[in-house]
């Protein structure tokens, strides 16, 4: 029996996709806020795995480095600074929770139906398999110079704003 490479790729995709969705659902169901944060880590890391399969090597590393390595730490620090609510049940009233789930399910059904029935012209059968870091660098500093510089202004504003808001007076 011959195992084609695509089967391994597909196995990887389904593993990561299932882990990502399972993590996201567990995040909502978990009673403990800290557990929610750990499930979010699972989702983010698995999304990084999906990025690799879809041909985004640089982005996968960035996903792990920024989301898992930085944003998650920030969120956990936020939890440590607001300790009173860690163990409190934090699901909304049943009515609101159920209606929220229904709205989300409806949006999923509509978007899934749309993207499955649409004809995607000009697409390849398999994800691209080239090194992306250099190309991203080139387009970041030629085509997207303006967003890049605006991003730095955004960081500056976020940094100053967050310091002003969070500091104890």
């Amino acid at each position: 029996m011959v195992i084609p490479m695509e089967l391994l790729v597909a196995g990887g995709f389904y593993t990561f996709a299932a882990a990502a969705i399972a993590g996201a659902i567990s995040l909502i169901i978990a009673r403990n806020v800290f557990h929610s944060a750990l499930f979010l880590t699972l989702t983010l890391a698995s999304a990084g795995g999906v990025f690799v399969i879809l041909g985004a090597d640089f982005l996968a590393a960035v996903q792990l480095l920024i989301y898992v390595g930085a944003v998650m730490i920030l969120i956990l620090f936020g939890l440590m600074l607001t300790p009173q609510d860690v163990e409190l049940p934090n699901l909304s009233t049943p009515g609101q929770a159920i209606s929220g789930a229904i709205v989300a399910a409806a949006i999923f059904v509509v978007s899934a139906a749309t993207l499955l029935s649409a004809q995607w012209s000009g697409t390849a059968a398999e994800p691209s398999d080239v090194a992306t870091t250099e190309q991203i660098g080139v387009s970041l500093f030629t085509t997207f110079v303006l967003p890049f510089e605006i991003a730095s202004v955004l960081f500056l504003v976020a940094m100053i704003g967050a310091i002003v808001i969070a500091r104890e007076r």
Binding site: V62, V71, L74, F77, L81, G137, F141, S152, M159, R167
Partner: peptide
């Protein structure tokens, strides 16, 4: 915990994102 912990985390996130933007620049 005291707020200084959060301020370090905040500054770290911003500088980490900055460092990540520098990687494609360094390669290209």
């Amino acid at each position: 915990f005291r707020t200084p912990y959060y301020l370090y985390a905040l500054l770290f996130v911003i500088f980490d994102v900055e460092a990540v933007f520098l990687f494609p620049w360094a390669v290209a």
